[in-house]
């Protein structure tokens, strides 16, 4: 029994992280692809939700607990509800809308290629620090010990080094909010 348990734990330790990572990465890629090709717009929306949740799991695996949870709150709790609002209010879209023409391909590429380039550039330039590994190497966490997490550090950085971008983003959101309220009220009277 104890021998079997040891083997099981060792196997989980050796292959577990890799299996989990490739599983979640596969889920993210598959659901992102399905969100693009799905015939029904509501399938696209819910597939996108699976994709967002999977990305949050990847963040958690990289040791970014705050980012992972925020991803779920913002994208699944906020953006997804708004997308669903859109889906509910637009009803089932006519078939023509989802047909791909040359124009839509060109427009799509014009957006997708720069975004892809920026992402690849960012991913290639990052030295991926595995926080959990570094922490485990420094001091193995005791059973039941509390992990301080990344929240306090992120908060400090946001209110010191990155104060300007942080405040600027909030002004941007405020502008969007006021604009949306004005548009919803029917523009200038």
């Amino acid at each position: 029994m104890a021998e079997l348990l040891g083997k099981l734990t060792a196997a989980m330790g050796t292959y577990g992280p890799a299996v989990l990572f490739y599983g979640v990465a596969g889920l993210v890629l598959a659901s992102a692809a399905y969100a693009v090709v799905a015939k029904k717009i509501d399938h696209s929306a819910f597939s996108l939700m699976a994709c967002f949740t999977g990305v949050a799991a990847l963040y958690a695996m990289l040791g970014s607990d705050f980012l992972a949870v925020t991803q779920v709150i913002v994208y699944v709790g906020g953006i997804m509800i708004l997308i669903v609002f859109g889906v509910l209010l637009t009803d089932r879209l006519p078939v023509e809308y989802r047909q791909i023409s040359r124009e839509t391909v060109v427009q799509g590429l014009a957006v997708a290629v720069p975004v892809m380039a920026a992402l690849v550039w960012a991913a290639a330039g990052t030295s991926w620090p595995v926080v959990a590994e570094a922490a485990a190497a420094a001091a193995p966490p005791a059973a039941g010990g509390t992990d301080p997490g990344t929240t306090a550090a992120i908060g400090k950085l946001l209110l010191t080094d990155y104060l300007f971008p942080f405040e600027f983003a909030s002004v941007l959101l405020l502008v969007a909010l006021v604009g949306a309220a004005r548009m919803a009220r029917g523009g200038a009277k």
Partner: peptide
């Protein structure tokens, strides 16, 4: 708990497994 008899290859792997 199986900390004692886990012949893990490294600290992270053992902790992860457990």
């Amino acid at each position: 708990g199986v900390e004692g008899d886990a012949p893990g290859p490294g600290v992270l792997e053992t902790i992860w497994g457990i």
